[in-house]
């Protein structure tokens, strides 16, 4: 494997099974989620996932503009994933890139199975995701935060959608690939998962895996999703059920 880029001498996994940022193979980065961070949005959330810093605002269900997009049978979901110009090493032009447009779509489709918009015909729910600082796994972090923001907005949902990636680094399946591992590693697999319905709603893969590795990678990612789910739950509990709740 040619490791390309400037970090060719980076040790991705040492003899004790410790990764380049000091984590064990099944350990996620530090994750913090806060629900209800914006005043104007109907629902919102902020997530720090490793070095990712992402804020999500949800509006709706509300009138659809332009009108012709409205569906008389159900509400529709729209999603915009956007990176701030200062979120990455090299300044990013403010206009949306092809990558951002694709991520917007896969996040929307990961959330669609969970939201129940049949009760709101002719409306739209808008999800706006702003990546203030980007790190590896920003789409998973964005998806996890978007799910919290939707629940905060009171959009009816069959389940939360959690998210975490797994990947292959130095011939080993590891949880939650970071930026360096993504650049120099062998595979990255972001997964979105409905924990109670046990349904995978987002999965992508960059890299090469054997069938055995593939299975292990999916299982590892789902394990990560379950950890992230607990943090999502805590964010909502902290906002809605704290200060003097007595059960």
């Amino acid at each position: 494997m040619i490791l390309g880029g400037r970090d060719t001498d980076l040790v991705l996994l040492d003899e004790n099974g410790i990764r380049c940022d000091g984590r064990k193979i099944d350990e996620p980065r530090k994750i913090m989620i806060k629900a209800g961070v914006l005043k104007n949005a109907d629902g919102s959330a902020y997530i720090e996932f490793g070095d990712n810093k992402i804020v999500v605002g949800v509006f709706g269900p509300r009138d659809v503009h332009p009108k012709h997009l409205a569906n008389t049978d159900t509400g529709i979901l729209r999603c915009r994933y956007h990176m701030s110009p200062f979120s990455v090493e090299e300044r990013k032009k403010p206009a949306p890139s092809r990558r951002e447009i694709e991520i917007s779509k896969v996040i929307k489709e990961a959330l669609k199975p969970a939201v129940m918009l049949e009760q709101f015909p002719r409306t739209v729910v808008d999800i706006f995701i702003e990546v203030l600082q980007a790190d590896g796994g920003s789409r998973c972090a964005a998806l996890a935060a978007a799910s919290v923001a939707l629940a905060d907005a009171g959009i009816p949902m069959r389940d939360m959608v959690s998210a975490c990636a797994a990947g292959k680094v130095a011939d080993t399946i590891v949880l939650d690939v970071n930026n360096e591992e993504d650049q120099a590693g062998q595979a990255d697999m972001p997964v979105g998962y409905m924990p109670n319905m046990e349904k995978i709603t987002l999965i992508q893969l960059d890299g090469v895996l054997t069938p055995e590795e593939y299975k292990k990678c999916v299982e590892t990612a789902i394990g990560g999703c379950k950890l992230v789910y607990e943090i999502q739950k805590k964010a909502l509990t902290d906002k809605y059920f704290s200060n003097g709740g007595n059960n």
Partner: peptide
């Protein structure tokens, strides 16, 4: 206290506001 996706109970209950029936489970 519940959030979306939480299983409230299962069995022969009637689902009303803000819950759905998923097989036997009420969510």
């Amino acid at each position: 206290y519940v959030i979306p996706g939480d299983v409230i109970t299962s069995g022969p209950y009637r689902p009303e506001q803000n819950v759905i029936l998923d097989g036997e489970r009420i969510i």
